[in-house]
Computed example of a mutant assay.
Amino acid sequence: MQRIIDTLYLLIPLALAAFLMVAPLNAAPVASLKEIATVEGVRYNQLIGYGLVVGLDGTGDGSRTGFTNQSLTNMLSRMGISAHPDDINVDNVAAVMVTAMLPPFASPGARIDITVSSMGNADSLQGGTLLLTPLKAPNGDVYAVAQGQVSLGGSADAAHATAGRIVNGAIVERSIPFSLEGRSSITLLLKNADFIAANNAQDAINNQYGEEIAHARSSGVIEVIVPENLRNNIPRFIAQLETIPVQLSNSGKIIVNERTGTIVVGSDIRLSTVAVSHGNLTVRIEPQFNEEGEVVEPGRNDRVALFENGISIGNVVDALNRMGMTAEDMIAILQAMKQAGALSGDLEFI
């Protein structure tokens, strides 16, 4: 069997339990630094708030949700209107949780999108209006206020009628106290900690600037010294860093989704000598040659699959696919190979 260095095989079970393969690549993947790392401190911050949506057409919480009555009573009380919770009909009102992501460097007056989700017995938020709702960070400080018409992104028959969005529905009231000014260095955080990626990123940065300004502190942290000529314009320096190409290591994992039967195979995974019997099929990792000295490939009707020692898992999956193996059978065989110690990579289930 011809050996191929496969960067990635993506296999999806079809109607007859076949798999669809993505064409292999011959070289290690390359990504820009922006794709694999972020700047420490430059991140989104989560906000949350509790509010009321009014103006619903009888699809609100109703009398079954007592805290909605209490919330509406408290709101009316703050407006100088005296009312008792038992005297209020909340069929047109829904209690909701409001969530948002505060972007880095967002200034007061900026607008952000919000998500509104029912937390009571409302049937639909269609046509409702969110009343003024403070949005707080985990420390309790208010960073934005939200209000506006809730949109379900479609009609009243939307699949999730109890959750909607308001585009630009919140106004930022205060910014996160973070600044890049005056920094002599910045810290890069790899999205997926990996020593090879960290080392390659360090070398790529140093080669770009011709000096040792980057130092990998761990598999996920790289400290970069800001050059003297760019310390007055750190955003420009970060923009330059983000475009630097970094060579990544090939994947050494097999990702299996048992619910969908999807299997993703990395290219660095090899198989050592093993024999696995599954149903009426036997998979053996050992060489078999024909009279011309070529490795014999299994046919679709063969029930013994023979492969040479050290072959890539991608080639094995390809051959088993041609033999008509189902996704469930393929997963079972991979598990058996891993348990036997013949599979070099990590088998991860999601």
Score class of each variant (00 low, 15 high):
D86P: 11
T133P: 01
S251T: 14
L152F: 12
E40A: 04
G62N: 09
T133E: 07
V22C: 05
V42T: 10
L241G: 04
E258K: 02
S32P: 02
V274A: 14
L180F: 01
R236T: 11
S175V: 00
I114Q: 04
M337T: 02
G164H: 07
V283P: 00
V264R: 07
N206D: 10
A144D: 08
R270A: 13
L130P: 07
V226P: 05
S267D: 14
A106T: 01
V142W: 07
H278R: 14
A28N: 10
P245D: 12
A18L: 08
S155H: 14
A204W: 03
F19M: 15
V296A: 08
I213Y: 00
R270K: 13
I311K: 01
Q335D: 15
N26L: 03
S184H: 15
A18W: 05
E242R: 10
P24V: 01
V172N: 05
E286M: 03
Q70D: 10
E242A: 02
G210W: 07
D329H: 06
P287V: 08
E228L: 05
I255F: 09
R270I: 13
I166F: 09
M79H: 13
V276N: 08
V264Q: 12
V316R: 01
M330W: 06
Q202R: 09
I81D: 14
A340V: 02
F67C: 12
M323K: 13
R300H: 12
G66P: 00
P103V: 12
V145D: 09
F237D: 00
L131V: 04
N139C: 10
K34E: 07
P177N: 12
L241K: 00
H160D: 13
V150C: 08
I311D: 04
Q240R: 08
L56W: 07
Q2N: 14
I255M: 06
S118W: 06
N192W: 06
L306Y: 08
L20H: 11
A122K: 03
R217T: 11
S117L: 01
V150R: 09
N309L: 06
F289K: 10
R284A: 04
I36H: 00
M325D: 09
L10A: 14
E308I: 10
G58M: 02
E40V: 00
T260K: 04
S155L: 13
T260V: 02
I112F: 03
G51H: 11
V30T: 15
I234M: 08
F67R: 13
L11K: 04
V53S: 06
S218V: 05
T262R: 10
D57Y: 07
N206A: 04
T187D: 04
Q202M: 01
N233V: 00
V172M: 15
K136I: 02
Q335G: 15
A170S: 08
F105N: 11
M1V: 15
G169A: 13
M119Y: 09
S179W: 00
E35P: 02
S63W: 10
P235K: 09
A156P: 06
